[in-house]
Design a protein around this nucleic acid. Structure first.
Length: 575
RNA sequence: GGUCUCGUAGCUCAGUUGGUUAGAGUGCCGGCCUGUCACGCCGGAGGUCGCGGGUUCGAGUCCCGUCGGGACCGCCA
């Protein structure tokens, strides 16, 4: 139907008779016998000059045949790639009339209520931004797939109808028609199957896998999302990190044209100490500064005896933060778990602070020296349990200094050596697994299982980009003795382990190779590479924060006969 | 489950201390226009002020509830 696309024609094409297809954008009429029509497709816009009295309107789908010619002197449009030329002597074929769109099909729609864009997503997708995002996504998928194939990974598809598993995210359930009361679950990840593929001798598995989790939605979370899921046999941590790095760096290069340098590594402990989070945003400073020793002999009760005292410095912010804002910061710190927040405004001869009178001159000057503070800087200090101190300041640091996620430069970092156990389950009093219960403990820490379990590190790792967690993985336990040790530390009896995880672990008896893997979220990577701070912008048909689709109206009630078939009865909502 | 925030014309918004017939831009429809490109000029249509209740002589405006969108906390092994 067409000889060229709408973004293609250049001066070199002058004289050619061409056919273009697309949607009618803006039109500028000058009486009955001259009209300019901007014809648009996913490649761009070409101006067509129409001399007949043809009724073409916004978003009509048309085929225009005409002759490419140079624009008359003084009418060249430098803001269009095709602006040197136009198509004249046009014959217009209307392929489909259209009603006017509810919002403009151009950059002005960026400001339109997202709900309305989603209601008419098929129109929204015609826009340059959306077309670009879809194509970036496709390029990332292609690059990732190519990188995995090159590294001899085998793409294996795993089932979408799987058994419900006891741990982890809330699952979507699918009722069985054959056995009323029995349900499939939709996979929150292919975790179970990919490890069994290793037992099955596949050696290196990957899949661009759809994962489903029935948890509340966010800017970076949808019910359904895509992961590059992979697993490899007979490897250690470095092999996994290298293989994933290849895929991620290839994807970044495919989109930006520039290959990022090798991805740096940081231990979980260092990330917490310096940035107060396990997904540090390395694009800005404001690092946490250790102050515990400075106050080792302090008279100030709020500091005395605290496990950890740390501070962050906000450059030159002393003036701009009034009492009101400082109170808000304090509230923020408290809601993040701190007992309080101490602020110091640096002056020429000391500090201005409600607690200044409790601090000795030596302490004040030691703090300023440790923080590298100058007059006009604002210092925020938290004294609490080590984890709390780190986390609270990490939250404040992100609140005060973090740029939008897509703002360059890209800072990839591997966070390694996560703790094997994190915190304590409120109900059972048992330690909770940091990653999952099949994660390999760090070999140097195995003797700490009995003495100090919370200090045991694991061979688990996260990939972080600009403060967003892209994904995580681990080397898995493949020996039953070690697995038993972990279960014991988690307070899981042999009987309970068999009941909960038997279907998963029993196959290991038939010969599980040492193996490990990783999974990272493609939506998040694509969003950041596309310069978006919301993954809905890189998903063709996303859901709202409430999990609904304004276009299809899903979820919807179903016919009672369907429910009867499935042996289901809907109960009234309880408030 | 919680905190915050938004909801007025197709779209983006303004709307005074609670006071006459709720406005603008843009889009849409009609007319004029032979070199525009955010074309221009003239005219017109277009409103359940999200919904329900309350206070009041009088509510877009104040109060309560509710629905919908968004950000975040909880949650996401």
């Amino acid at each position: 139907m067409r000889t060229h696309q709408c973004g293609e024609l250049r001066s070199d094409d002058i004289g050619q008779t061409v056919s273009l297809t697309g949607w009618v954008g803006r039109r500028r009429e000058h009486g009955e016998h001259l009209a300019f029509v901007d014809l648009r497709d996913h490649t761009g816009i070409t101006q067509c000059v129409i001399n007949d009295d043809v009724d073409v309107r916004s978003e009509y789908v048309v085929r225009i045949t005409g002759v490419v010619r140079a624009r008359p002197e003084g009418t060249v449009n430098d803001s269009l790639p095709t602006g040197q030329v136009e198509v004249g002597e046009c014959e217009v074929e209307i392929l489909r009339k259209a009603t006017p769109p509810p919002f403009p099909v151009d950059a002005r729609a960026d400001g339109v209520d997202e709900n309305i864009r989603l209601q008419h997503r098929y129109i929204d997708l015609r826009r340059e931004r959306m077309q670009r995002n879809l194509r970036i996504r496709s390029a990332v998928n292609a690059a990732v797939r190519k990188a995995m194939e090159r590294q001899e990974f085998v793409e294996v598809e795993t089932p979408m109808l799987v058994p419900s598993t006891p741990e982890g995210a809330r699952e979507f359930l699918v009722p069985s028609r054959k056995e009323h009361g029995a349900f499939y679950a939709l996979p929150q990840s292919p975790q179970l199957f990919k490890q069994l593929l290793m037992v099955g001798g596949v050696d290196r598995y990957y899949q661009i896998a759809r994962c489903l989790r029935d948890e509340d939605l966010r800017a970076d979370r949808q019910y359904e999302f895509m992961q590059l899921d992979m697993e490899m046999s007979f490897v250690g941590q470095d092999d996994v990190l290298d293989a994933v790095s290849e895929a991620v760096l290839d994807a970044a290069e495919a989109v930006t044209g520039e290959r990022p340098g090798p991805i740096e590594r940081m231990t979980w402990l260092e990330a917490m100490e310096r940035f107060g989070v396990d997904k540090p945003d390395l694009r800005f400073g404001m690092e946490l500064v250790e102050l515990t020793d400075v106050f080792s002999a302090t008279e100030f009760k709020a500091f005395a005896g605290a496990e950890a005292i740390k501070g962050i410095k906000v450059d030159g912010a002393a003036e701009e933060y009034g009492r009101n804002q400082l109170d808000k910061l304090t509230d923020k710190a408290k809601s993040a778990g701190a007992k309080g927040l101490v602020w110091l405004k640096c002056t020429d001869d000391g500090v201005d602070s409600p607690v200044a009178k409790f601090l000795s001159d030596d302490e004040v000057s030691a703090v300023k020296a440790a923080m590298g503070a100058e007059t006009g800087d604002l210092i925020l200090i938290v004294a609490d349990a080590w984890m709390t101190t780190c986390e609270v300041l990490g939250t404040l640091r992100n609140d005060l200094g973090r740029p939008p996620v897509h703002q360059g430069p890209y800072r990839y970092v591997w966070i390694i050596e996560f703790p094997l156990f994190v915190g304590v389950d409120k109900e059972s009093g048992r330690p909770k697994p940091g990653h999952h219960p099949f994660t390999m403990p760090h070999p140097d820490d195995v003797d700490k299982f009995d003495t100090d379990p919370m200090a045991v590190r694991s061979i688990a790792y996260d990939l972080v980009l600009n403060g967003w967690e892209l994904g995580s993985g681990s080397i898995r336990i493949h020996e039953p003795e070690l697995q038993q040790k972990v279960f014991t530390a988690l307070g899981i009896t042999a009987e309970e382990a068999d009941r909960k995880f038997g279907f998963f672990l029993n196959p290991f008896e038939y010969g599980a190779p040492p193996h490990g893997g990783f999974a990272f979220g493609l939506d998040r990577l694509v969003a950041i590479l596309a310069g978006e701070d919301n993954i809905r912008e890189v998903i063709a048909f996303p859901k709202t924060q409430n999990g609904t689709d304004p276009m299809t109206n899903a979820p919807v009630e179903v016919d009672p006969r369907q429910l009867a078939d499935l042996g289901l009865k809907v109960l009234p909502k309880i408030d």
